[in-house]
Amino acid sequence: MMGETTLARGAYGLAWLKKIPLGRIAVILVPMLWLAAFFFIPFLVVFKISLSEAAIAIPPYSPLLQWDSSSSYLTFSLNFGNYLYLFESRFYLDAYLSSVKIAAISTFFALLIGFPIAYLIARSRPTVRIVLLALVILPFWTSFLLRVYAWMVLLRKDGLVNDILLMTGIIDQPIQILQTDFAVYLGIVYTYLPFMILPLYASLEKMDLSLIDAAQDLGAKPYQSFFLVTLPLAKAGIIAGCLLVFIPAVGEYVIPALLGGSDTLMIGRVLWDEFFQNRDWPMASAVAVMMLIVLVIPIMFIRNSNKEAE
């Protein structure tokens, strides 16, 4: 009798185990664990190292927890010096402000150039639309680095842009365009333009055209129907496009490094130099943490707009 009940209980136990959706849990856990390990935890490590001191060692930072063998004490030291230095020194503050400024102005111009293109694509015939969309997507698939490099070739003192300006008589001697802030703006607008056009197109394509007809029937002038009907309806696309350009542009390294001058101050470049040239890992980490804090609000915003779209 006893044996039977245990057996039955055992079988019941197994059935209970079978009810746990193991497959479902595995399917959820695999991508989750990967992202936790290689996306989320790294930020904690950055935060930890930003609180340690630079040291001449391998790796070049001091541990937070240290066993002092002479006094047998476990010492725990947090060093806020990196953060204090970030705020005290004009240099870092200027770099953050200048990155935000450069990214914001570039985003504005990307919107200005991208909007008419997105509008035209959304309003063209299906076959034409596919071709135009392909023309927008194609640069997005070709190498970012090589597209930045293409501007290096064009903007040199003996490059094509200077040649054309000389030929048309707009200038009478070559001007410095490469290694200026202007070249950085140009580079950002150029490389991030597809990121602006695609979300704009997506929201303009969904728009009900009869609304514009209605506005014009009611006597709205074209510019009025544009500002009062088209723009508000394209709001979601405008916000998504602007964030997709602005956020990565703030931390951009390649464009200021190749097109900017030595005085073009951007925070991504500061982080890079702090890490690769000064080998000050804790300071580079503190710069990264501050950059994340600056960007966390727009990043959350993008997530929420994604959710709404779902």
Partner: peptide, 12 residues
């Protein structure tokens, strides 16, 4: 975690 890497600056 799926959306953030899309816009995260590469240096970070």
């Amino acid at each position: 975690w799926v959306t953030a890497p899309l816009v995260m600056p590469e240096v970070i």
